[in-house]
């Protein structure tokens, strides 16, 4: 019976690994444009690509550890199940050198991951497109249960307070592609979080704070934008879109949106 249990636990590990292996082909992996049938979506922002790379690095390390520990676990279980009655149990209180090895090796690996990732975090939060370099395209204000977005008029910069010629949209965030842009994230009521899965961007919107979030989008199309922090009963329905368009289209869209917004039906009298 002991052998059955050894196989049972090893089989559970094999199934777990197998499930992860086939998951991308069933769409159970990163969202984003699929790359060559593999099924794993590719991120649409440069920071998102770095996040994916880091994820895969951690995944490899974790997978090797998981398979290794479960192989050893399977071995010791099998051995413990097949031990003969006359065979002596290994009487050991431990091994100093083993303890040293399995302290230093994981410590080294963990420290490697810790140091390696600092760059990506710094890229997201400190350097490269710091808010000064990224153009502030919009102020995004979350509220129960929608997103209100304010853009500066074409050719102007975003001011902290609303201006008379600002352009507004609801639940549609328009951004230009191909260059770093930033948004000022706010909330009008409770806490929300700005999350664009295909860009891998997430930031909480905290009452009383204005938080800059910067990113770039590489492909002009629509991306789903959701709320990722519990904000009340309608948390699940803060459905919005991030609409990325080329630079010219962005300017053209803003002109059109401003025209529509300020249109009061009043026409110049015919001359």
């Amino acid at each position: 019976m002991g052998r059955f249990w050894a196989v049972f636990f090893v089989a559970s590990a094999v199934i777990a690994v197998g499930l992860c292996w086939v998951a991308p082909s069933y769409g159970l992996w990163f969202p984003g444009t699929l790359k060559g049938g593999f099924g794993a979506g590719v991120a649409h922002s440069s920071i998102g690509k770095k996040i994916d790379d880091l994820f895969y690095l951690v995944l490899v390390i974790v997978a090797v550890t998981y398979i290794g520990t479960h192989a050893v676990l399977g071995y010791v279980l099998w051995r413990g199940a097949t031990i003969k009655p006359e065979e002596k149990v290994l009487f050991s209180h431990g091994s100093h050198s083993l303890e040293v090895i399995w302290t230093i090796v994981p410590a080294g690996i963990l420290l490697y991951i810790a140091l390696y990732q600092m760059d990506v975090w710094a890229a997201y939060r400190f350097k490269e497109f710091s808010p000064k370099k990224a153009e502030a395209v919009a102020e995004v204000t979350a509220r129960q249960f929608e997103w209100r977005i304010r853009y500066p008029a074409r050719g102007k910069t975003l001011m902290p307070t609303p201006q008379p010629d600002d352009v507004y949209t609801v639940n549609e965030l328009h951004v230009p592609t191909g260059r770093p842009v930033s948004i000022s994230l706010k909330t009008e009521d409770v806490q929300h979080a700005f999350f664009v899965p295909e860009l891998r961007i997430k930031q909480d919107a905290v009452p009383g704070l204005t938080i800059p979030v910067w990113f770039d989008v590489d492909e002009p199309r629509q991306y789903e934008m959701v709320c990722a922090e519990l904000c009340g009963w309608g948390h699940y329905k803060m459905k919005a879109r991030l609409i990325a368009v080329s630079d010219e289209d962005f300017g053209a869209w803003k002109d059109k949106a401003a025209l529509e917004q300020f249109d009061d039906g009043f026409k110049k009298p015919a001359e």
Binding site: L77, R79, G80, S92
Partner: peptide
């Protein structure tokens, strides 16, 4: 895992 190793389970 070391504890299980070599025991009479």
């Amino acid at each position: 895992i070391g504890t299980i190793w070599g025991g009479r389970l």
